[in-house]
Simulated scan of single mutants.
Amino acid sequence: MTHLETIRRYYDGCSTGDVELMCGTLTDDVVHYFLAPNPGSKPVDGGEHLARYWRKVHRMIDARWIVDHIVDGDEEAVIEWSMFWRPEGRAERVVTRGAEWFRFHNGLIREIRSYYQQRESTTELDGFRYDERGYSVPARETSALHPASAGGAPCPK
């Protein structure tokens, strides 16, 4: 599986709360770092713990993550993503744009460093033409790189 395929599967799991799908993309000792002062900015350690964390987040804010762009290397990849979500008590969804740096080990995600600002309104680059560049947009929560979801695999023991 390519880094892009692994990252898409990971985000498909995050977007559906599918713990098994996420676990099939993560090492047992994965660490996810978050940019402070976002909500929940302390690092999350361990594959199953991280998968259960994202299942909880998905349930709370009806989140859907889309991979929009990737720069890929041997054991690392950097992506831009969009998260479509619903702030508490609101009917309309907003989009948070961000970037993450992934480190891999034996084809699985070992580390994630996440860079974004989560606010209760859309956060994105001013003047950037997301739609013209093939990125996901509010009317289309998919991208050229991330068109559909995939199935799950059990958590490693």
Results as ranks from 00 to 15, higher is better:
residue 1 M to K: 08
residue 3 H to Y: 00
residue 5 E to K: 13
residue 5 E to W: 01
residue 7 I to G: 06
residue 7 I to A: 11
residue 8 R to M: 06
residue 8 R to S: 02
residue 9 R to I: 02
residue 12 D to Q: 07
residue 13 G to T: 01
residue 15 S to I: 09
residue 18 D to P: 03
residue 18 D to Q: 09
residue 19 V to I: 15
residue 20 E to P: 03
residue 23 C to Y: 09
residue 24 G to F: 06
residue 25 T to W: 04
residue 25 T to H: 08
residue 26 L to M: 13
residue 29 D to R: 11
residue 29 D to C: 05
residue 29 D to T: 14
residue 32 H to R: 08
residue 32 H to D: 11
residue 34 F to V: 04
residue 40 G to P: 05
residue 42 K to T: 08
residue 43 P to G: 09
residue 46 G to N: 04
residue 47 G to C: 09
residue 47 G to T: 05
residue 49 H to D: 13
residue 50 L to Y: 14
residue 51 A to N: 10
residue 53 Y to V: 03
residue 53 Y to D: 13
residue 56 K to N: 11
residue 57 V to R: 05
residue 58 H to Y: 08
residue 64 R to T: 15
residue 66 I to E: 03
residue 66 I to L: 02
residue 69 H to A: 11
residue 69 H to E: 12
residue 71 V to R: 07
residue 71 V to F: 10
residue 73 G to F: 03
residue 74 D to N: 06
residue 76 E to P: 00
residue 78 V to W: 03
residue 79 I to V: 14
residue 81 W to N: 00
residue 81 W to H: 06
residue 82 S to F: 02
residue 85 W to E: 02
residue 87 P to S: 07
residue 92 E to P: 02
residue 93 R to Y: 08
residue 94 V to T: 12
residue 96 T to V: 11
residue 100 E to I: 01
residue 101 W to M: 04
residue 105 H to S: 12
residue 105 H to K: 13
residue 105 H to F: 07
residue 106 N to L: 07
residue 108 L to P: 04
residue 109 I to G: 01
residue 110 R to Q: 13
residue 111 E to R: 13
residue 111 E to D: 06
residue 114 S to F: 02
residue 114 S to I: 03
residue 115 Y to P: 00
residue 116 Y to E: 07
residue 118 Q to C: 07
residue 119 R to N: 07
residue 120 E to Q: 13
residue 120 E to V: 02
residue 122 T to M: 07
residue 122 T to L: 08
residue 123 T to P: 04
residue 125 L to K: 12
residue 125 L to V: 04
residue 126 D to G: 02
residue 129 R to L: 09
residue 129 R to H: 12
residue 131 D to K: 14
residue 132 E to R: 10
residue 133 R to G: 00
residue 133 R to E: 15
residue 133 R to M: 14
residue 135 Y to L: 07
residue 139 A to P: 01
residue 145 L to A: 08
residue 145 L to N: 04
residue 145 L to E: 06
residue 146 H to Y: 12
residue 147 P to G: 10
residue 151 G to W: 10
residue 152 G to T: 13
residue 153 A to D: 13
